[in-house]
């Protein structure tokens, strides 16, 4: 399974949930914690992200950076 990951700028997230709806793996949720603006921000809460970038594309505030495993780099790291 391709491994993917997301990092969200939690202070800029407005908890609109569009990314959660767009995620085919349902690996996103709103955190029980609040950011300074009082929004529950998005977070990855399962390890089944594939790095498909849906969440990044749909996010109106461009807060999500999406990572995807690079086979070569992973081999070098393990070697």
């Amino acid at each position: 399974m391709i491994k993917g990951y997301i990092i969200a700028q939690t202070e800029l997230c407005k908890g609109c949930e569009l990314c959660i709806d767009a995620c085919p793996q349902e690996s996103l949720r709103l955190s029980p914690n609040l950011n300074k603006k009082g929004y529950r921000y998005v977070e990855l809460y399962k390890d089944n992200c594939t790095g498909c970038t849906n969440c990044g594309i749909i996010c109106p505030d461009s807060v999500i950076t999406v990572y995807r495993e690079n086979k070569k780099k992973k081999k070098q790291a393990e070697a």
Binding site: I7, T65, Y67, E69, A77
Partner: peptide, 19 residues
């Protein structure tokens, strides 16, 4: 608890989407 960031795992990944 959210998937904790595994620093090395990220290093072996490419950024595929960003602002």
């Amino acid at each position: 608890d959210p998937v904790c960031i595994d620093k090395e795992a990220i290093d072996s990944m490419d950024v595929v989407y960003d602002k």
